[in-house]
């Protein structure tokens, strides 16, 4: 396991790369969902529809 984490001495380069890419992916999911949710909330507010976003 520690050999795996060590990445043959390249741990300091390999893991940050994966971390950055995964962060970008997760942020994209969060941003996209937030955009949709905000648009829904605004539309409901505008049209005065009761209830919550599904």
């Amino acid at each position: 396991m520690s050999a795996f984490l060590d990445m043959g001495g390249y741990a300091a380069y390999v893991w940050p790369s994966y971390a950055v890419t995964l962060t970008v992916m997760i942020l994209n999911i969060v941003w996209a969902r937030r955009l949709l949710q905000r648009s829904r909330k605004e539309a409901m507010h505008r049209l005065a529809i009761g209830g919550t976003a599904k």
């Binding site: 955009l35 539309a43 599904k54």
Partner: peptide
């Protein structure tokens, strides 16, 4: 990602369309 964002964009661009009322009805 594009599809999720697109839905949000479409909703915020179509400001008064009545279909939104239908689509968002809980």
């Amino acid at each position: 990602l594009l599809l999720v964002r697109l839905r949000g964009e479409v909703l915020s661009r179509e400001r008064t369309a009545s279909w939104i009322r239908e689509a968002l009805r809980p």
